[in-house]
Write a protein that binds this DNA or RNA. Sequence first.
DNA 1: CGAATATTTGAGGCCTATCAAAGTGAGTGG
DNA 2: CCACTCACTTTGATAGGCCTCAAATATTCG
Lengths: 260, 260
Amino acid sequence: MTTAGTIPPGHEHRIRTLADTRLARLGFVSPVERAALAKVEVAARLLAPGKELVRQGSTPDSLYFLTAGWAFRYVVTRDGARQIPTLLIPGGVCNLDNLILERADFGVRAITTATVLMLPRERALALAAKHPGVGRAFTWLAIAENAILTQWAVGLGRRSALARLAHLICELSIRVGSGAINNASFDLPLTQELIADTIGLTPVHVNRTMQHLRAAGLIATRGRTVTIPNFPRLQEIADFDAGYLHQIEKGAVAAPVRAT
Amino acid sequence: MTTAGTIPPGHEHRIRTLADTRLARLGFVSPVERAALAKVEVAARLLAPGKELVRQGSTPDSLYFLTAGWAFRYVVTRDGARQIPTLLIPGGVCNLDNLILERADFGVRAITTATVLMLPRERALALAAKHPGVGRAFTWLAIAENAILTQWAVGLGRRSALARLAHLICELSIRVGSGAINNASFDLPLTQELIADTIGLTPVHVNRTMQHLRAAGLIATRGRTVTIPNFPRLQEIADFDAGYLHQIEKGAVAAPVRAT
DNA sequence: CGAATATTTGAGGCCTATCAAAGTGAGTGG
DNA sequence: CCACTCACTTTGATAGGCCTCAAATATTCG
């Protein structure tokens, strides 16, 4: 199921070095630093759908940069319930916490076929220490996750099922690059069970809530593709404030490169 | 209510420079770097209980290091509900996100009388760029927050009211330094309303849940002081895994100082 | 000591969970 | 190319945890 170091058909043109990674695209990394990142040798790994990449409670010695496909972080409670605190899309680091923490307090699992680049923790720390821009980029990644987790906590704590689902769809539309526009459309490779574990509901209720959104004309689905006919209306239902994500996306595109 | 630059009685012996701050105590900062931090001039600010430090949606130009007292970050939804994603205790940075993000997506408010040190964002970034240990410490702070937020998301999404409350008490016992021991006791300056907004319940239900914990002998309260007679039992109810916090606390005390 | 704040109690209702089973669709092997 | 199978989605009925609204009691603080 898992091959190491081999890039399968369809993935040849994908990201192969850290310089093509979100880490280097944030705008904090200078051209010189970026060149240094390009020279770092990193192994690639291909994951089959559903494959576990990090086991909850293990001590991974590498950071996994997700370069293709979707994945998720999850925590299983003692009585067997699962919560997904983070959905990972290409560009994210699967286990950013392990840059500094030894133990992974969550598991990581692929949703679709996915590829990751493996960067040993020690090397990541050395890069951050040597290149201030890289260090700042790591900090930025962590803070961006914070912002998303914070919104997530608000949703789980204070929003209705309908708003949570709507919020998730708004968030993903922006994160995957479809934008906050009418008729935004994107591929959502999540089963209703995964959605349920993400927004803290049961699969059955996710199903009903989804029907509600569809009946109200707030979303349309064809297979795994979601379309948002009227973004502002969905956004209002969701109580979605694009600000936090816009800041993040902006940082990813055109953050200032300050003198170091 | 707020005086700038003045340290009131009872606070004279408190933290006055960044070198005494958690930032410098994490173990990532070398002695040289620490000396540099000690020389950075920072203004102090005293906050009365309930005083707002950062307004949701504003663009603070400084980082606020909480040196005494408790505070919290909060988000208010469109329909007026409030969620507290982060409780801040001395040592934390009130608005760490603003190290990199311009806009504060959450508000910050003092719970008790509190003091903060103000470090302009630009200076913080410069320090991080110049001193790798400082940069790494910032990254560590962000990741530590991630770990806590992740657990919080799990609780809000998948745990019962009883477990959430128990979990909060376990977490705070460790974070304030009372440890995971029987008869751990600490001051909890939170009203039931604040607890409700933290764990995503109504104040009424927090009250009832608290009575439940008391009746079961899992906690005892005298005024604002909480005692945990039997930590393992409470921990089991809470499904509390001390691991994530232990890693964090360990980092705060004895993290390796690597060569830069 | 009085006013404001916080905690506690009570009754009733709603949102979401639970349990169970029927449809639906995609992928597989003959 | 067609059954077959497995996973996923959908539907139905019932239950329960937490919310809502309201008011009484306790506590804090000036």
